[in-house]
């Protein structure tokens, strides 16, 4: 009996969030007197796979087949289902990202296994199995019980600390006969944006709203982001107006992010905006209106004109970095 994580790799590497997932699974495994194992389908090298051992993963099953190059949730679920059966897994955990959101529900329907998505903490108990998740776009939390033998979770980003616990994981090749008739899609073209820090990965995000008044005024946002090693983001009207690309839009209808630090410049703090950034650890707001709702949720605030405050903030950050 083992707790399984799906460890996604990109270009042969695991992101920090995969190690968070491993740490979480190892902690749940302890609660259930079990061990945590990982399924890897992306074919990263042995050395990269071994890194999962630093976060408590005791065994790694590596599956590779040409057909998983096109990501298809039905095909991928065949592999996961086979692992669940072989290793007798009572619990499968995914990241709450594009991949996890595609796989976990499909697996849930396939195995008739209860699923809770966007879980934010360790189970409060494992018998009965009860976890807490975000609901109403992060305006509330719910405690949810899973009633089936096999259970599935997706873990919200940035909700569990990396925890080192060294194991030396065995790496096994895993193979099954895939039913490839399920693979109907094919990739015609891939368009990549290069050279930028991915918004969803960023530890620090500098974001601009309508208070920036126009695309020609964005340089201070970009400069502050650069000084902090941060990604840039924006509110919805800003991307609707075409001041910034839609990939930067955060909020309920855009990207949902959970950085350590979110700096909101000229953003009023509408409830739909906060739905996308409410999980940030620390929020800084710069706004000229002292009654702007953003100050109700910010940890630090400056009431002032962004065009005066930002240049000073940029030089203060640069000074600090130079130390």
């Amino acid at each position: 009996m083992s707790i399984l994580i799906y460890a996604e790799s990109r270009e042969g590497m695991f992101k920090k969030s995969v190690f968070e997932l491993a740490s979480y699974a190892a902690a749940v495994a302890k609660m259930m007197n079990s061990q945590a194992i990982a399924l890897v389908t992306g074919n990263p090298g042995q050395e990269e796979m071994k890194k999962l051992g630093n976060y408590g993963i005791s065994k790694i099953l590596s599956f590779y087949d040409e057909s998983v190059k096109v990501f298809d949730s039905a095909i991928c679920c065949q592999v996961i289902e086979a692992v669940v059966k072989k290793e007798n897994c009572p619990l499968v955990i995914f990241q709450h990202n594009n991949t996890g959101k595609a796989l976990a529900p499909r697996l849930s329907a396939r195995l008739k296994a209860g699923l809770v998505t966007a879980v934010i903490s360790l189970p409060e108990s494992t018998k009965p199995f009860i976890v807490t998740k975000k609901v109403y776009t992060a305006k509330a939390f719910a405690r949810v019980a899973i009633k089936t033998q096999v259970k599935i979770l997706t873990l919200s980003q940035n909700s569990y600390m990396l925890t080192e616990s060294k194991t030396d994981p065995a790496i096994e090749q895993f193979s099954i006969q895939l039913d490839k008739s399920q693979l109907k899609i094919s990739v015609k073209e891939v368009q990549l944006l290069t050279g930028k820090i991915l918004l969803t990965d960023a530890e620090i995000v500098v974001s601009g709203g309508r208070g920036m008044r126009g695309p020609e005024n964005w340089q201070p946002i970009i400069d502050l982001a650069e000084a902090l090693g941060a990604a840039t983001a924006c509110s919805r009207p800003v991307s609707d107006e075409g001041w910034r690309p839609h990939t930067e839009h955060v909020g309920q209808t855009g990207k949902i992010i959970a950085p350590n630090l979110y700096i909101a410049c000229g953003i009023s703090g509408a409830i739909q905006h906060m739905g996308g950034v409410g999980s940030a650890k620390v929020v800084v707001a710069i706004n000229k209106d002292k009654d702007a709702p953003i100050f109700e949720i910010a940890d630090y605030g400056i009431v002032g004109d962004v065009f005066k405050v930002l240049p000073e903030l940029i030089s203060a950050v640069k000074e600090h970095k130079a130390k």
């Binding site: 992060a138 939390f141 899973i146 409410g278 630090y300 605030g301 400056i302 002032g304 405050v309």
Partner: peptide, 27 residues
């Protein structure tokens, strides 16, 4: 397969700490 047991609202954040716009270094 699952059951919502109860709901709660997030704890209110401690109030926002204001920094003087004339003293951005403090931030």
């Amino acid at each position: 397969l699952t059951e919502f047991l109860s709901f709660e609202l997030p704890k209110h954040k401690a109030s926002c700490r204001m920094v003087d716009p004339e003293n951005v270094k403090e931030l």
